[in-house]
Design a protein around this nucleic acid. Sequence first.
DNA 1: ACGTCGCACTTGCATTTTGCAAGTGTCGAC
DNA 2: GTCGACACTTGCAAAATGCAAGTGCGACGT
Lengths: 93, 93
Amino acid sequence: MSDLAAALDVVGARWALLVVERLLDGPQRYGDLQRDLGVPTNMLATRLRELEAAGVLTRLPLRHNTRAYALTDRGHALREAIVALARWGAEQA
Amino acid sequence: MSDLAAALDVVGARWALLVVERLLDGPQRYGDLQRDLGVPTNMLATRLRELEAAGVLTRLPLRHNTRAYALTDRGHALREAIVALARWGAEQA
DNA sequence: ACGTCGCACTTGCATTTTGCAAGTGTCGAC
DNA sequence: GTCGACACTTGCAAAATGCAAGTGCGACGT
């Protein structure tokens, strides 16, 4: 499997990169991600679980049943790739 | 929709970026892509249609019923993003 | 002490996407 | 005129995604 395929195995699923992009600004709570991205709640839960398992992000407990999701170093390392893709998307056509 | 979401709308589908990566080396024929990537043939056909419609690649007629797929400028512009993602994938863990 | 609210999910089911296997059409070579 | 290579298409099963409604749990007011 190529390096690209390995990367896509982790962040190639729908919404995954959008979640990571949102977390580049700093830790966010579940509800914030959901409202900002418009992602279905079950998909968000699934992605967060997968991305945590992949070591891209971690859960930070805040208060009682509230927590924040924050990128790990490995997650932050995606910044370059995300910026490059976003720039390509911006040059539409 | 963010720029990243716009990009993923075009190249976010499964196999799409892998096809583009393969074409970065130069035009390839259908059968080559299929064998090199191990992508199901109906998916390859679908992706090539979508990527052509999106202006990422074009068909070059070769001989009779043989053609090659080549990246457009817009397709080549994905190189940076692909390299960044592949590098991230290579730094596994 | 009790109901209510916000938050972070889970669950059930319909829809869409993906994948596998087999088939189709076309052209050139033999 | 039949055979093989090439580029697909088709039919159907499996998996991913999406929508809507429900669950659990602690805080907060009364």
